[in-house]
Design a protein around this nucleic acid. Structure first.
Length: 426
RNA sequence: GGAGAGAUGGCCGAGUGGCUUAAGGCGCACGCCUGGAAAGCGUGUGGGCGGGCAACCGCCUCAAGGGUUCAAAUCCCUUUCUCUCCGCCA
């Protein structure tokens, strides 16, 4: 959410940002409502002041045993007017809030212009895509042939975009997220969190999923609960409505969670394999930092996520998302894309963003620079570190051998009980 | 799930319709005192919104939302959360 005072005093910058993002939204209604609200507010506050003053007089008159009927009658009608005007103001405020909640964040200065992913700016490439001297198989075929992933029974038991991990596949998944959590908590200074996997609507609003993206999520029928689409939601909302002390900042959390996504607009896309599932595991990195250095923190966050791929020996590239491809809440985002041989291309495996104070304002997360200073909003950042299912897919594809087996990356072998290879016969 | 009790400022805690612009204490900040410190004394000490260049002024805020009243922390209703007991349960 943008600061209403910022929108009021910088309408041109906001309009420019909307154009840059190719979002069709007129600010004029908002600006008019804002002016109307302030006008009515001044009027009703003046009446309330009168009521406060006169009510006190009535109290004194009554105490002194004097008549106060006339003033009481007058105040009765004043109170009625206040009630009506309060309703008007409230109505305007609801409208303003509804608009404000649907205005996306302003992209930062360095975000490249562009309308879709083709305009994203390549920042770096790491590793060489491996040349296979046989035909590289897609991970779903490998998974089925090794009997470590079962898509068919996933469909039977749940539906499309669900799957079972089995045997060495289940163990590999577990090895991956344990490896990631150990790396981030031991080497990178993140405090580990296991959050609730179900949250309320306030939390979804705090991070920006609601009100605009309700159809992307699973809501539990008859309740106010949602399955989380990422650990970002519960972990960012950890400090909702709190004022943090400077000495506890910056806060780094890493969190494991399953993620649940309705994939409403993705019918027909990535229908096979692990790339686009309704449920997948992810290790998420979340930071709460001082606004002064949030962009340094973004670079460090990106490096922490990249490190996972480097240690796993998976080739990847980093792109700086253009304005048109940027998520609703983000001011800047780097995507990390891993090489998938069967797709013959790079696919997103992590998204690292600085939200500046956009989420902090929605979720009301503040801090004080000095002990007696005014509270101000923190900057929040997060990034996948990494999406576990996609990482597993990347390992199956990049580490496949001609005989159909999979070699286990050395860093994972301790997590696999020393196993170095997954073969069909086991 | 059943029965009951609660929710007041950073913390503890008073307050059952107007003398509360939330008592008192703790904590914190500043000052006095001191060679320095402690103790003591004094002053100050939440958040949001609106107006104003500012000093400052006004409004709102006693879990949240509604209601009664000229006037609500206080009375009524709803919701949320916490605690106790019972039942069930990984």
């Amino acid at each position: 959410m943008l600061d209403i005072k910022f929108v009021r005093s910088n309408p041109e910058s906001v309009k420019e940002a909307l154009v840059k993002r190719a979002v069709d939204l007129s600010l004029d209604e908002f600006l008019n409502l804002d002016e109307e609200r302030r006008k009515k507010l001044a009027e009703v506050e003046q009446l309330k002041n009168k009521r406060n003053v006169v009510s006190e007089e009535i109290g004194k008159l009554k105490k002194a045993g004097e008549a106060a009927e006339e003033k009481i009658l007058e105040m009765r009608s004043v109170s009625q007017s206040i009630k009506e005007m309060d309703e008007d103001v409230k109505e305007i405020e609801v409208k303003l809030q509804n608009i404000l909640l649907t205005i996306p964040n302003v992209p930062n200065q360095t975000v490249p212009e562009g309308t879709d992913e083709d305009d994203n700016q390549k920042v770096k490439e790491w590793g060489q895509p491996k040349e296979f001297d046989f035909e590289a198989k897609p991970h779903w075929e490998i998974g089925e042939q090794l009997d470590i992933i079962d898509f068919e029974r996933g469909s039977k038991v749940s539906g499309a975009r669900f799957s079972f991990y089995k045997g060495a596949g289940a163990r590999l998944e577990r090895a991956l997220f344990n490896f990631m959590l150990d790396l981030h908590s031991r080497e990178h200074g993140y405090t580990e969190i296991i959050p609730p996997f179900i949250v309320n609507a306030d939390s979804m609003t705090g991070t920006g999923q609601l009100p605009k993206f309700a159809e992307d999520m699973f809501k539990l029928e008859g309740t106010n609960y949602y399955l989380i689409p990422t650990a970002e939601v519960p972990v960012t909302n950890l400090y909702r409505d709190e004022i943090l002390n400077t000495d506890q900042m910056p806060i780094y959390h890493c969190a494991f969670s399953p993620c649940f996504r309705a994939e409403a607009g993705a019918a027909g896309r990535d229908t096979r394999g692990l790339i686009r599932q309704h449920q997948f595991n992810k290790v998420e990195l979340v930071k709460f930092v001082n606004p002064d250095n949030s962009y340094e923190e973004l670079e460090k966050l990106l490096q922490n996520a990249e490190q996972v791929l480097q240690l796993l020996g998976l080739p990847y590239r980093v792109v700086n998302l253009c304005a048109g491809d940027l998520g609703f809440s983000a001011a800047q985002t780097y995507d990390i894309e891993v090489w998938l041989p069967s797709f013959n291309t790079y696919r997103e495996i992590s998204s690292c963003s600085n939200f500046e104070d956009f989420q902090a304002r929605r979720a009301n997360i503040r801090f004080r620079r000095e002990k007696k200073g005014k509270p101000q909003f923190v900057h929040t950042l997060n990034g996948s570190g990494l999406a576990v299912g996609r990482t597993l897919a990347a390992i199956l594809e990049n580490y496949q051998e001609q005989d159909g087996s999979i070699s286990i990356p050395p860093v994972l072998q301790p997590y696999m009980g020393g196993l170095t290879k997954i073969t069909a016969d086991k």
